[in-house]
Computed example of a mutant assay.
Amino acid sequence: MTRFGYTLMTEQSGARDLVRYAVAAEEAGFDFEVSSDHYSPWLTSQGHSPYAWTMLGAVAHATSRVELMTYVTCPTMRYHPAVVAQKAATLQDLAEGRFILGLGSGENLNEHVVGEGWPSVSARQDMLVEAMKIIRELHTGELTTWEGDYFRVDSARIWDLPDQVIPIAVAVSGDESIERFAPLAEHLVAVQPDKDVIDKWDAEHDGGSRKIGQIPISWDPDEKTAVARAHDQFRWFGGGWSVNADLPTPAGFEGASQFVRPEDVAEAIPCGPDLDRIVAAVKEYVDAGFTDVALVQVGGDTQSAFLDGPATELLEELRAL
């Protein structure tokens, strides 16, 4: 049975609204909720970027059933892995076992803010491997000292470990990343319905892990309004992660996406009131082998209308898949 999730999109809503949406999503019947972890929005028109971990702590107390997940946190530059290990443990305790730590190699947009530059993709993946090993070591509760190629940890211990294990999901994109990260994580994160990626991950895990995808939608009673909103706030998505990982500022994304047309966005993102179009788009992920699919409703001011309106009916149609 595929699980369906709701995305707490920190780039398009403030923290208090996100907590309110999290509660409404649980009430609407979503199985899990994922949160982006950004320092800046992708585009200025999105207009928000609260601190994800503070918000998730509030969500953990405001909800009781849905699983929670970072989608995804970069534990290498803006955050030291020892700090990620501590806050993941605290959040798992607050969530009483409902939290999955989603990790990835990050984007320049968020990580450059600490003034350490932006490494090559190979270096970023090396850093992520080392960071994941440190986090695992600290989650044993043992006193940890680490001297690595990228990180040092000096006599650190996580004093408040939750009763439950903190599972790790990691963002992958191809053979090399699967080979490197699969031994270090329980679950996969990917944003394209690529069956080959799923099959190769399953071969490393004997098919027993979760494969967690994400898809943007722009539901609205009026299709033209939905397309215009998606173009205004989500046209950055069309660049692909090879571009998205390296641009440093919202202004850069404005420039890179200036020639993306509304019809281009409408072709890539289901827009309008037709739930069957959304179901068809999600079905590609289900058919590819994803066990979990999170929806991103585009537009911070549309979340209540979506959650109070078609969300429950949409979930029923999705579960019929």
Rank of each mutant, 00 (worst) to 15 (best):
residue 96 E to K: 05
residue 257 S to L: 08
residue 75 P to W: 11
residue 115 G to Q: 09
residue 7 T to R: 03
residue 38 H to A: 08
residue 239 G to K: 06
residue 14 G to H: 01
residue 121 V to Y: 14
residue 314 L to Y: 07
residue 131 A to R: 08
residue 276 D to F: 03
residue 37 D to M: 03
residue 257 S to A: 09
residue 39 Y to F: 14
residue 178 I to R: 01
residue 39 Y to E: 15
residue 61 H to G: 11
residue 136 R to Y: 07
residue 33 E to G: 02
residue 206 D to L: 13
residue 226 A to R: 00
residue 271 C to G: 01
residue 319 R to T: 02
residue 289 G to R: 07
residue 207 G to H: 10
residue 145 T to Y: 05
residue 223 E to K: 11
residue 275 L to W: 12
residue 240 G to C: 10
residue 277 R to V: 11
residue 45 S to N: 08
residue 106 G to A: 02
residue 134 I to K: 04
residue 304 S to T: 12
residue 42 W to Y: 06
residue 156 A to S: 07
residue 144 T to H: 08
residue 107 E to D: 01
residue 220 D to R: 13
residue 16 R to C: 00
residue 303 Q to E: 01
residue 212 I to S: 08
residue 175 D to R: 15
residue 140 T to Y: 02
residue 207 G to M: 11
residue 200 K to D: 05
residue 266 A to R: 07
residue 179 E to R: 14
residue 66 V to Y: 10
residue 239 G to H: 05
residue 319 R to S: 05
residue 219 W to C: 09
residue 264 D to S: 04
residue 71 Y to V: 15
residue 214 Q to G: 11
residue 147 E to I: 00
residue 60 A to D: 00
residue 132 M to L: 04
residue 22 A to C: 01
residue 293 V to L: 14
residue 181 F to M: 07
residue 233 Q to N: 12
residue 112 H to V: 00
residue 272 G to W: 05
residue 38 H to Y: 05
residue 34 V to D: 04
residue 296 V to Y: 12
residue 129 V to I: 14
residue 23 V to D: 13
residue 92 Q to D: 06
residue 153 V to E: 13
residue 195 K to Y: 04
residue 152 R to V: 11
residue 10 T to K: 03
residue 12 Q to E: 11
residue 116 E to H: 10
residue 158 I to L: 11
residue 152 R to L: 12
residue 101 L to M: 11
residue 268 A to P: 09
residue 213 G to R: 07
residue 54 T to V: 13
residue 85 A to R: 07
residue 284 E to V: 08
residue 140 T to W: 00
residue 157 R to N: 10
residue 97 G to E: 03
residue 49 S to I: 03
residue 113 V to W: 06
residue 17 D to V: 12
residue 101 L to C: 02
residue 2 T to W: 05
residue 313 E to C: 07
residue 221 P to Q: 02
residue 107 E to A: 01
residue 163 D to S: 15
residue 154 D to I: 10
residue 115 G to Y: 00
